[in-house]
Design a binder for these strands. Structure first.
Lengths: 344, 344
DNA sequence: ATGAAAGCGCTAACAC
DNA sequence: GTGTTAGCGCTTTCAT
């Protein structure tokens, strides 16, 4: 900013009113008479006035933005959620800052965002953040409202927007069982992650409900990434006693898993059936197209944003409300064929 | 912000110095004696002081952030670039705002970002923005510095960070020709896009250089998306006289193309060879793994961010510098087999 | 090297 | 419904 912009005073002079009236006409139109408003608007037009947000924020003692904490910006799973957040936030005028929690500098600047003046609220997509970050400001003067989305903290009563992960797992297992599979494995997300836990637990429960064995050796470690899916495939290949179907806790892992199997000459769904989780855009285009559990990602983002706005404005419930959005099974080629291998 | 934070005055009192000294100790340490600095830092610690950015920005007459204009946040291609930008920007303290230019509200708020006080600089990944947006502030008091990345404006002399798209196309075509293909098609990006133009032109030139026919019917319309790749596959399938190899201007289109062909019973690379462009993460995991032209995406982001910082600080060259970063061919399965169909 | 003081541009009491 | 005025918390001359 080197040259000067018209400021509110310029508009006031052009309109022949006080700066307060201009401010009101712009920020609280109902407080100003119809005529004055029109005059002010015209003056705004004429002067080319644009508000200085730094000044407004300073005066209002707010930051003017919210921050979204994402575990991995490069994961396409988050793109739609982010997009939903941006859409829902747009009319509010708040800036949306996106921060990758796994980034190099994470620690330092993250706290800076939370502790105070840099954010009026937070949407946290990574519940695995260090305790001191998530409870930032707890002991201090002020903690900005937080909404957890996708992930959440067990036993924490803050607002969240999630899905029923165990139910998603059950849909996947039920589908595989209906196809005739009785030897079913699971590729898990990163250890200690709440999604990993609930999906794995849901898988165990569903397996048990069908009277099927829960074999620990068929629960493969992973971390939601493509590479970890491929690595799980290597372990699958090395087994004597393989499951005939594998439910992966993310589409990315399913993609990596299928790709690696393919490279080893194993066919999907011919030799193994695979189910993913998320229904990322490419799932439908993969070879074979991936059967998966679809989450309403855009809606998750929009809902989280709306809740945060309510919290900031102290509208709505006292807080701590947990929304659980619906998931559904999308059947595609990767499980298209009923199990054919002898079930042992 | 409802309760109060310690402000600079509190620190000053705790340290027994003036607010000016605290400010200097924090923002220009070299202007303050070693001892005073230590005392101030201790007081900062003790009071739990955190700077109010709105106040600083107001006083300094700056916005405190830069905005990145992305054509489509949901496209994983941009994720790494964004990540690179965030990394390079982190130490500067500038906020990084990411805005999706294809979003509903785009028009309105975009101008607001550009015209003034909301951004100290811009990184534009979408050169297809309306003219009035890209030249925002041209006639006005002030226009924030802009760096174009990936895409650029023909004949515009502002800074940019790009790759040599025509060369990328040549690498792809050379590879296919070396494999024995003589009937080569191309799936293009969105019309009027500079990347579409340069890649298509590069394809034509490379084809001509090998003495091969440039058949307009083999240039398929697309828009970089998965779906458009799949649609191109339908057109390919409907042809009598098909190319034996197809170079797609993006990995997403290549993925959609291959997926749709697979669903129609056509094998890649058995029946057609396919080359993509970008080398997005999943390219290596697709079935078949995708041969593609790799771009240094993270580096593009970092370079663009650095250039913007230079522009903002008026360091570095007068501006208008165009960086061209290297691309390379990555050979994988989707072209792994020399052409076997009779070349007609 | 440090301090005093004047705002940056806006909004929100408070008057009228 | 509109005007006056006092800051929001910081940086930055200008003195010293």
């Amino acid at each position: 900013m080197t040259k000067r912009f018209p400021k509110i005073r310029d508009v006031a002079e052009a309109a022949g009113v006080s700066t307060a009236t201009v401010s009101r006409a712009l920020s609280a139109p109902e407080m100003v008479s119809r005529d004055t408003r029109a005059i002010v608007l015209k003056a705004v037009e004429a002067t080319g006035y644009r508000m200085n947000h730094a000044a407004r924020n300073l005066r209002r003692r707010q930051a003017g933005g919210i921050v979204v904490l994402v575990p991995n910006l490069a994961n396409p799973f988050f793109a739609q959620i982010l997009s939903g957040i941006a859409t829902a936030m747009a009319p509010s005028g708040y800036n949306v800052l996106i921060a990758d929690t796994r980034q190099a500098d994470a620690g330092s600047s993250m706290l800076d965002y939370l502790h105070n003046n840099r954010a009026d609220g937070l949407i946290v997509l990574d519940a695995g953040l260090p305790e001191e970050v998530l409870s930032a400001g707890q002991g201090r003067a002020f903690q900005p409202p937080i909404v957890f989305a996708c992930e959440w903290l067990e036993g924490d009563d803050r607002a969240s927007v999630t899905i029923d992960n165990a139910y998603g797992a059950r849909l996947a297992i039920d589908h595989l069982v209906a196809l005739g599979h009785r030897r079913i494995g699971h590729v898990m997300g990163p250890p200690d992650n709440i999604l990993t836990l609930t999906r794995a637990q849901g898988t165990r429960a569903a397996l048990a409900a069908h009277g099927l064995a829960v074999r620990e050796g068929w629960f493969f470690a992973g971390d939601f990434s493509l590479g970890s899916g491929a690595a799980a495939a290597q372990r699958w290949l090395a087994m004597d006693d393989r499951p005939t179907a594998v439910f992966c806790a993310s589409d990315a892992m399913a993609g990596g898993f299928v790709g690696a199997l393919h490279r080893a000459g194993v066919r999907v769904p011919g030799d193994v059936s695979v189910v993913g989780f998320d229904d990322i855009e490419i799932a439908a285009h993969l070879v074979p197209a991936l059967t998966t559990i679809a989450q309403p990602r855009r809606l998750i983002g929009e809902t989280a944003a709306q809740k945060l706005l309510d919290l900031i404005r102290k509208t709505g419930q006292p807080g701590g409300v947990r929304d659980v959005l619906p998931v559904e099974l999308v059947v595609r080629e990767s499980t298209g064929v009923p199990a054919r291998r002898s079930p042992r």
